[in-house]
Write a protein that binds this DNA or RNA. Structure first.
Length: 765
DNA sequence: ATTGTGCTCTCTATT
DNA sequence: AGAGCACAAT
């Protein structure tokens, strides 16, 4: 295994004397080094798998690492401490919930939940929402927590900040009362647990002899302190990172942690991995040239032994729809040439851009898979269902109570809820315990609602998880509600999918070496480790302490917002944001929407640091490609319901021209026709004529050839007419005989691919 | 008092 | 596109 590594990689893998910092460029085999090192530690250094802690940022990365280790070693990786910061903190807090001052069933708020909680605070305290926008409050609280500051520790002088701190304090109290934590709280609470309980932290310090951190450049202050807490005097830290790929400053990431880490721990043990095994020369050098525009880099020079490869193909199109169609046509050509669908990725800066691309892929019948965006566990029907389940697990969860008390509608309106809230506040009880005090018709509806939840709570003690979920969907009325809704069928399917997800979770739990029901046997008693001997759920000796499958499932839903959802095994083109593409690689990458204002995003253009972060993001995007990289841009784009016109991204200009191959005319000398009709096009669907659809001089090879079918010579540019689609222009032709196909841009219906042997076409010109 | 409808406003990225 | 709000209809 080590023989296949280059000298620097193997130096990193077998590093022995203390801590180390690995500066690993894009595509330099970073994950390979991490996993190989873990295997090496276990196999060669005879370190127990339990003595290793490996931290990543995304669940995807954690899964990847586990599966690679599992492939190399015959051990149960499920029991290893490999996970995301948030996931591992969750694990620790569940185990030591008493010391962390949390109920064992504490729930995790995602962004939307957190926002709802903040809105409740603002409403209850009569804060002016226009002066204190919930989003700003959320950012304020999150960034304070990421600095490790509780309300008392925040320095505030001006009236505005003082009010913010007040809201922060109220928010904390509310969360504590209701037994919920947000993402930042998971980390902060866990850190405080370790800092305040020497017995606990010493236990873990002795246990974790090796701590490995992936994507170290993305750690924030809190995470750094968390690592410092877990690393004991005899632990070795192994941090892998690339300052050029730091793209999470917006959530507190601090590249400076790398410098600090070298000063505090690595002390000169810095290993650079600069050989890139992923991309061909043009792609790599283009990315190198781009990132060279950033200042304050630690400095790295990536090189490759692979040849130059192909230039980056750049295409400018008139509109976002044409961009999408062009990308789809090109994707089809790649697939036809034998590329696997899952080796093709379409990337964009923001999730909103995926719609148009999805539409084009869908109409072309190309299987695709979208990552991120509105994820499974974030859909409204799923959130409703989860709220019922959360209430089932804990009646104190007022957030969830308010979400579903009147959904589906059961005659409990705003007025009633105001009464209820008043009662709950007066007697300082959770909402559910105040229902008895509300009289009247709505009051009895409230009592009924609570009865419903109580029945579910009872059912949760006996029913398996998936049956409980199914039962909940039924008795809550959610199923009936979505059955009556016009567009409810997809939501119904999602609810059924939730039952399946619960079933899968049950099964995984029963196989996993790491049961959800960990119990924190007293650490200072002779049991050396609470986790190694934790009983499986339902085993006699931990029943009262064990975490119920329901609570474990709810935590799972919050922490993994659903990117692992049904990978049904079909080969599909991958659609995702640049952020979620980090760490992945593909044969062909389409980088779309390269327009100033979109990428770089307009919110970051005016700050220097913002622009540098955007440039790193661009660098990440480009270095995802192995063989072929496309960059596309649209002159006009539907954004926020309005057509916007943009220029090419400055990042395209920053790439030396020798690496680029323009398929459209070069942006600067391109004259575009017919922009006006597009902006007025009422449906906003497609440009009204083919005039804007320029294929430019050097487009794909399939276009040049002609095809002869039934005595007619088809070639690009030919004007044809179709009985149903109307008039159009032939864009590309391919295949021969019965397989001959043409892509035709119809004035009325856009681009269609037709089989020439079947379609009834009339030649016009 | 509650529910449904139509209008405005916002909208970067992730755990 | 989705959420929040005002208004009308029950």
């Amino acid at each position: 295994m080590i023989e296949q590594l280059n000298p620097y990689q193997s130096q990193a893998v077998t590093h022995e004397d203390g801590h180390a910092l690995i500066l690993a460029g894009a595509g330099s085999g970073k994950t390979r080094v991490l996993t190989t090192r873990i295997v090496w530690l276990i196999q060669q250094k005879l370190i127990s798998p339990h003595a290793i802690l490996a931290v990543t940022f995304t669940n995807k990365a954690a899964r990847e690492m586990k599966s690679r280790i599992a492939a190399m070693l015959p051990i149960n990786v499920g029991g290893m401490w490999v996970g995301t910061f948030h996931g591992l903190c969750n694990r620790l807090l569940r185990a030591h919930y008493r010391d962390a001052n949390l109920p064992q069933t504490f729930q995790i708020l995602d962004n939307t939940d957190q926002l709802a909680a903040i809105k409740r605070i603002l409403k209850a305290g009569n804060f002016d929402e226009s002066k204190f926008p919930p989003r700003d409050v959320l950012r304020f609280i999150a960034s304070r927590k990421e600095e490790g500051l509780r309300p008392d520790a925040v320095q505030a002088q001006d009236p505005y900040s003082l009010r913010m701190v007040e809201i922060y304090r109220l928010y904390e109290a509310q969360c504590q009362r209701e037994g919920v934590v947000d993402f930042a709280e998971l980390l902060l609470r866990c850190l405080e647990l370790l800092e305040r309980n020497p017995v606990i932290s010493q236990h873990y310090q002795q246990r974790f002899q090796h701590i490995l951190v992936d994507e170290f450049q993305d750690t924030n202050r809190l995470q750094y302190r968390w690592l410092q807490c877990l690393a004991g005097p005899r632990s070795f830290m192994f941090a892998v990172g690339d300052d050029d790929q730091s793209i999470y400053a917006f959530r507190g990431a601090r590249v400076g942690n790398m410098v600090d880490f070298e000063r505090d721990y690595a002390k000169g043990h810095v290993i650079r991995l600069e050989q890139n095994y992923r991309s061909y020369g043009h792609i790599l050098n283009a990315a190198n040239a781009l990132i060279a525009n950033n200042t304050e880099r630690l400095g790295k020079n990536l090189w490759t032994e692979q040849g130059e490869g192909e230039q980056i193909r750049v295409m400018e199109l008139a509109s976002d729809h044409e961009e999408a169609q062009w990308v789809v046509d090109e994707v089809r050509a790649l697939i036809r040439d034998g590329m696997s669908r899952s080796d093709i990725a379409i990337l964009y800066r923001s999730n909103a851009q995926s719609r148009v691309l999805e539409h084009a892929l869908f109409t072309s019948g190309i299987p695709y898979r979208v990552y991120g965006g509105l994820r499974f566990f974030e859909r409204q029907e799923i959130k409703h269902a989860l709220a019922y389940l959360r209430l089932t697990a804990s009646l104190d969860d007022d957030n969830s109570f308010l979400r579903v008390v009147n959904f589906p509608a059961r005659g409990i309106g705003a007025r009633t809820l105001e009464n209820l809230t008043d009662q709950a506040r007066t007697y300082s009880t959770p909402l559910a315990q105040a229902v008895a005090r509300v009289a009247g018709k709505a009051g009895s509806s409230l009592v009924q609602f609570c009865g419903l939840i109580q029945r579910l709570t009872e059912a949760s003690r006996t029913l398996p998880l998936s049956e409980l979920v199914d039962e909940m969907i039924e008795v809550s009325g959610l199923r009936a509600y979505y059955q009556t809704q016009r567009d409810g069928s997809e939501r119904l399917e999602n609810l059924e999918e939730l039952v399946t997800a619960a079933k899968v979770f049950e099964i995984e739990q029963s196989f996993s070496g790491l049961p959800a029901g960990l119990t924190p046997r007293q650490i200072n008693q002779n049991s050396p480790d609470p986790f190694e001997q934790a009983p499986a759920i339902g085993q006699a000796d931990g029943v009262d302490e064990a975490l119920s499958p329901l609570v474990a499932f709810l935590a799972h839903a919050s922490l993994e917002s659903g990117d692992a959802q049904a990978d049904d095994g079909t080969q599909a083109v991958q659609l995702m944001t640049v952020h979620s593409a980090k760490g992945l690689e593909f044969d062909a990458v389409f980088l779309t929407g390269l327009e100033d204002g979109l990428f770089p995003h307009e919110n970051s253009i005016h700050e220097r640091d913002g622009l540098q972060e955007e440039r790193r993001l661009m660098y990440v995007a480009m270095t995802r490609a192995r063989e072929r990289l496309y960059m596309t841009l649209a002159q006009s784009r539907m954004l926020h319901g309005q057509v916007r016109y943009s220029r090419a991204s400055r990042f395209v200009e920053e790439v030396p021209p020798e690496h680029l191959k323009w398929l459209s005319a070069r942006a600067a000398d391109n004259v575009w026709l017919d922009l006006a009709p597009m902006s007025t096009a009422t449906s906003g669907r497609r440009s009204s004529s083919g005039a804007g659809f320029s294929q430019g001089p050097g487009a794909t090879t399939t276009m040049a050839r002609g095809v002869e079918v039934g005595g007619v010579q088809y070639r690009a540019g030919l004007q044809v007419s179709h009985p149903r689609f109307g008039e159009g222009t032939v864009l590309t032709v391919s295949g021969a005989g019965l397989d001959a196909q043409a892509q035709i841009n119809f004035a009325d219906v856009g681009v269609k691919t037709l089989a020439l042997g079947i379609a009834k076409l009339t030649v016009l010109s």
